[in-house]
């Protein structure tokens, strides 16, 4: 199983052959490791929930400010009564909400996902301006360019070992409905390990979400989940 050491490999990133030799490369720390079954078949629902939360909160703030504005107009206004108590009450409510949200969301961080599971497949990914190489074998930067046809199993953990041979890129996985499923960065000199369980079969597209130069929007690849 992976250990908890830092993920740096070789600062002279144009010369390394990653992932095979050291076993040092890892994002997952032993601390906080947990069994975590994460069903990601509802990406659209998650996006919709976040948008709804935002729009409801933004509308509530706007209406509240309109109400405050309207209250300021009458000539007989006497200001806020017990402002100190109201402020304290508001601060306590807000702090409680923040603590609850932290408690709920932090364990869902990608650093802890599938940490105790052994990946069924490992895929090596090397990004460069403006293409990806994906392979079941570690990729030698000197001969990079030939990709394998990647087929991954559904409902089983897989691991992507992602790096870059030039600048920072993104490795962002979209389902066939163009919904962002998960992502990591492709950073020169480092390998980011992304573990995931695909719960839907189909074709997945990979796009670059880190601006990398003029070909940024055309940089893409794909793989299949069966």
């Amino acid at each position: 199983m992976v250990n908890g050491q830092a993920g740096k490999i070789n600062p002279k990133f144009r010369e390394f052959n990653y992932g095979l030799s050291s076993g040092k490369v890892c994002l997952i720390t032993d601390a906080g490791r947990r069994q975590f079954h994460y069903n990601k078949s509802n990406e659209m629902r998650e996006h919709a929930i976040l948008l709804t939360i935002f729009l409801v909160a933004a509308t509530a703030i706007s209406l509240f400010f309109f109400f405050i504005y309207r209250s300021s107009l009458p000539e007989d206004g006497k200001g806020m009564v017990n402002a100190g108590k109201k402020r304290l009450f508001f601060a306590l409510i807000l702090a409680s909400v923040l603590i609850i949200l932290l408690t709920v969301t932090l364990p869902k961080s990608p650093y802890f996902l599938f940490a105790d599971e052994t990946p069924a497949k490992v895929v090596y990914v090397a990004a460069r301006q403006y293409s990806y190489t994906m392979s079941y074998q570690a990729i030698d930067p000197k001969s990079a360019g030939r990709s394998d046809t990647i087929e991954l199993p559904v409902n089983q953990p897989v691991e992507f070992r992602v790096t870059s041979f030039d600048v920072n890129h993104g490795f962002s996985i979209y389902n066939d409905r163009a919904e962002l499923v998960t992502q990591t960065q492709a950073m020169p000199g480092y390998v980011n390990r992304l573990r995931w369980v695909f719960t839907e079969p189909g074709t997945y597209n990979v796009l670059c979400l880190e601006y990398c130069g003029v070909g940024h929007p055309i940089m893409r690849t794909s793989f299949t989940v069966k």
Binding site: F65, I68, Y69, S71, S72, L73, P74, E75, D76, G77, K78, G79, M80, A83, K86, R87, F90, A91, L94, A95, L98, L101, L102
Partner: peptide, 25 residues
């Protein structure tokens, strides 16, 4: 990132709201 919002909302924004509320502005 979370707790940066606490002083922002509970002190600064609240102070402006308390100033404006029924404040004959």
């Amino acid at each position: 990132s979370y707790f940066a919002s606490l002083p922002a909302a509970a002190v600064t924004a609240f102070s402006v709201i308390a100033l404006v509320y029924r404040g004959r502005i």
